[in-house]
Amino acid sequence: MQALLTEAFLTALIFGAVTAGVPLLLAGLGEQISEKAGVLNIGIEGMMLFGAYTGFVAAYYSGSFWLGFLFGGIGGMAVAAIVVLLCIRFGLNQIVIGIGVTLGFEGLTALLHFVQFSRTYPRLDQAPVWALPGLDQIPILGKALFSHSPIVYLAVLLVIGLGWLFRATYIGLNLESAGAKPAALDAAGVSVTATRAGAVLATGFLAGLGGAYMANVGAGLFVPFMTGGAGFIGIVLAMLARGNPIWVLMGAALFGISLAMTTALQVAGINIPTDVVQMLPFAMVMLVLVIFARHSVLPPALGLPYVRGDR
């Protein structure tokens, strides 16, 4: 038990929590944009996984992490484009297409990885780190919170940015009405299709970026199926956050800490199955849902395609 209380251990734990939490944060924020606009984006797992793959491949061949992140986002957007075409343009069932997209890209990325690398898993170099001058000197917390990949700071800034976007801009208002009363948005002369398409593409970019971070920074390599349900956790975070990005951040932190605990306990030599710790965040979310069930709020038109003239 002594090992749990050393300074180095705590730093490693919090550092690990941030690394594990950021992909969830990006996915959760992305999903939040979609859900606001009335699209239940179950395919986000596929977007993350494809982003992880394209991000890794771009970074691997170019040697540039920036290109890796960019292509990760673009990869996620490419998957989102399929969802836009099928669910928003054609109005097909969002849940079915979402599951189809997730399964398809799970298979496709595993296939592509096998063809390129067979059964080897090449590693990337250490990802670049921006230490925030001054702040990173704080004992314990400094190295844990302020010495990360730039994507981490970007993700946190995004929380503030999205909060402002949702609250204080026309874009936020349009998104909200596309999810609450699409016919009203249409009547006001704004295209519901375009609003929702933009939202889903943004989701794809963020999810893909999260996937690329997971592969390039978190793991340093790409493994098939590596997202392991992170996209689904993102959906949960978005639903619990009730449209407020701050709560996505809180939720991602909670999940990040639980995930980091899994490795930390092993390092500390505590002999309980990792599955016990892995259950914690899910158990906690269920508990929150049971206690605050009557407060959970979702846009009324969530999951419904908009067809002009339909009742």
């Binding site: 054609f90 069932n93 399964l103 398809g104 890209f105 496709l108 595993a110 296939l111 098939p224």
Partner: peptide
């Protein structure tokens, strides 16, 4: 050909059916 290819096939089937 990894067995994951089957996943791709199912996804394609689903998408084409929907279209």
């Amino acid at each position: 050909v990894p067995q994951h290819y089957v996943l791709v096939l199912v996804a394609l089937l689903l998408i084409f059916l929907a279209v």
